[in-house]
């Protein structure tokens, strides 16, 4: 099986706090891996390390066997890692269409002169078609002219995922995609995640507290506690593990 993402002996220290302590984690091709654990366990920090927002104190992060440590976030996105955020970060004053269109920016080859003089009209047309197609696939096309901030919460989450997909990633990081959603919406999201994995041939690493979602879709689960890896295994193994139950799941 092909390893898409591999974290080896990853640690980061903030001041005196060891936020991530010697973490090893792999995500294989076309796999959904979940990262769970109590609040403050270091899950989002882990995402910020992978996407280059923080630099690890020690350890290595490899995407498709190439190290990405020290690269800028935008370079890492270009290499094929896209993410969503725990607190939604859309371009809220811009239209739904523009939100997706901006993410297409990095896949065309133009410069500021060709863009200003409209000599890049072919690339521009290509970008627009791609964005339109993606919105069509995600069922957001009828909202394309709405401002992103005017969408209902659930659709904002969906748009954020669509925007991440527009960068054509090979690995998608979802940070609590179901936060604040009701059971109905969570169910829809579960099928959406499963759907996009097959459709776009993605590997997905997901942080979530909704256990039904996690147990439904993930192939493997990593449990973090106080920055350390507590357990790893399949959903059934994790569900029945004593340590995990006492640290996180509860009786």
């Amino acid at each position: 099986m092909k390893e898409v993402l591999k974290l080896t002996n990853l640690s980061i220290i903030f001041g005196g706090l060891v936020a991530i302590d010697d973490l090893n984690l792999t995500v294989n091709d076309n796999e959904i891996v979940a990262l769970i654990g109590p609040n403050g366990a270091g899950k989002t920090t882990c995402f910020n390390l992978i996407t280059g927002i923080y630099k690890p104190t020690t350890g290595n992060i490899a995407l498709n066997r190439q190290t990405i440590v020290g690269k800028r976030p935008d370079e890492i996105t270009k290499l094929g890692i896209a993410r969503t955020f725990q607190n939604i970060r859309l371009f809220s004053e811009l239209s739904v269409f523009d939100n997706v269109l901006i993410a297409d920016h990095l896949r065309v080859n133009d410069n500021v002169f060709t863009a200003t003089t409209r000599l890049n009209f072919k690339q521009e047309k290509f970008m627009r078609e791609q964005a339109e197609q993606l919105l069509e696939e995600q069922g957001l096309i009828h909202l394309k002219d709405e401002k992103a901030k005017n969408l209902p919460y659930g659709l904002q989450r969906k748009l954020e995922i669509a925007r991440a997909l527009a960068t054509k990633p090979s690995l998608l990081l979802l940070d609590e995609p179901a936060a604040g959603m009701n059971p109905q919406e969570t169910m829809e999201l579960t099928s959406l995640i499963d759907n996009i994995r097959h459709k776009y041939n993605l590997s997905i690493l997901v942080i979530e507290h909704h256990m039904d979602l996690i147990m439904n879709i993930s192939d493997r689960i990593y449990v973090l506690n106080f920055g350390k890896l507590l357990k790893t295994g399949t959903p059934t193994e994790i569900q029945n593990d004593k340590d995990v139950i006492s640290a996180y799941l509860g009786e």
């Binding site: 927002i53 976030p73 996105t77 901006i102 993410a103 990095l106 991440a164």
Partner: peptide, 9 residues
């Protein structure tokens, strides 16, 4: 942060 995450330098 979002701009960076969609590949804008």
């Amino acid at each position: 942060i979002a701009a960076e995450s969609v590949g804008i330098n």
